[in-house]
């Protein structure tokens, strides 16, 4: 039995124990309030114990039938995840719509769009139309930023 085949059960066991530890840090409620019911920590702990039992069953399953080796995650997928981080950075520092446009543009190119013009048009027109739809029809105000400050005044 290699650690590689049991990586998922090991990870899930660690998560379950972490949640049990966090649940044990929760305050205890006075018996007068809880009454015949249960403490707020009891239910999450019960769930994680159940999860540990299921993880044990999964480990046994993997021991009997080792899972197939996974193909490595493609570069394009890592880059797409990195774009999500870039979106976060741009949204909190500049503007949500700048973040959306930049990410859309880069995502199109990373995913294989050859025409920069088409990728740019998609990245500008789509957020603009969606913004108008949500602002005018659904009357939703977006977070303040470079563009929204200019628009909202």
């Amino acid at each position: 039995m290699s650690v590689k085949t049991q990586i998922v059960p090991i990870f899930l066991t660690a998560v379950s124990f972490s949640i049990i530890y966090l649940a044990l840090q929760l305050d205890l409620s006075p018996p007068m309030i809880v009454g015949d019911s249960m403490q707020p920590r009891s239910f999450p702990i019960f769930l994680m114990v159940l999860n540990l039992i299921l993880t044990g069953a999964l480990a046994l399953q993997f021991y009997r039938n080792p899972p197939k080796d996974q193909e490595p995650i493609l570069r394009i997928t890592w880059l797409t995840m990195a774009l999500m981080v870039l979106f976060y950075a741009l949204t909190v520092s500049i503007d949500m719509f700048v973040g959306i446009s930049v990410v859309m543009f880069l995502m199109s190119l990373i995913w294989g769009q050859r025409s920069i013009l088409i990728a740019a048009a998609n990245a500008i027109i789509t957020p603009f139309l969606v913004f108008l739809l949500f602002d005018i029809v659904l009357r939703i105000r977006f977070p303040r930023g470079l563009i929204t400050n200019w628009y909202y005044g």
């Binding site: 995502m107 939703i140 977006f142």
Partner: peptide, 25 residues
Amino acid sequence: VPINLLWPIVFALSVIGAYALNSSL
């Protein structure tokens, strides 16, 4: 429709849709 144009649109709709209900980042 090329998915390199479609899925960036899905990304835009997803983030705006997630924001819309509670206006919460």
